[in-house]
């Protein structure tokens, strides 16, 4: 078995370790993207309402 396969297999626990890390970064990623999108959309709305506002993008 190659070294990479060995690493991915995690001594037989790969089926538990990798989903755990995958899910962790899925959750963190979703929270990050969602929060950023919300901020962008609010910045755009504010820009439409009052372009000179310093908080508007």
């Amino acid at each position: 078995m190659s070294e990479i396969e060995n690493f991915l297999a995690m001594d037989g626990h790969g089926a538990f370790v990798w989903p755990a890390y995958g899910f962790a970064f899925l959750v963190l990623g979703v929270l990050l993207l969602w929060s950023l999108r919300e901020l962008r959309s609010h910045e755009r709305s504010l820009h439409k309402l009052r372009p000179q506002d310093p908080d508007a993008a």
Binding site: M10, H13, G14, V17, Y21
Partner: peptide, 8 residues
């Protein structure tokens, strides 16, 4: 004891 699953 736990082997590699400790990384979780």
């Amino acid at each position: 004891q736990q082997g590699e699953s400790v990384r979780i």
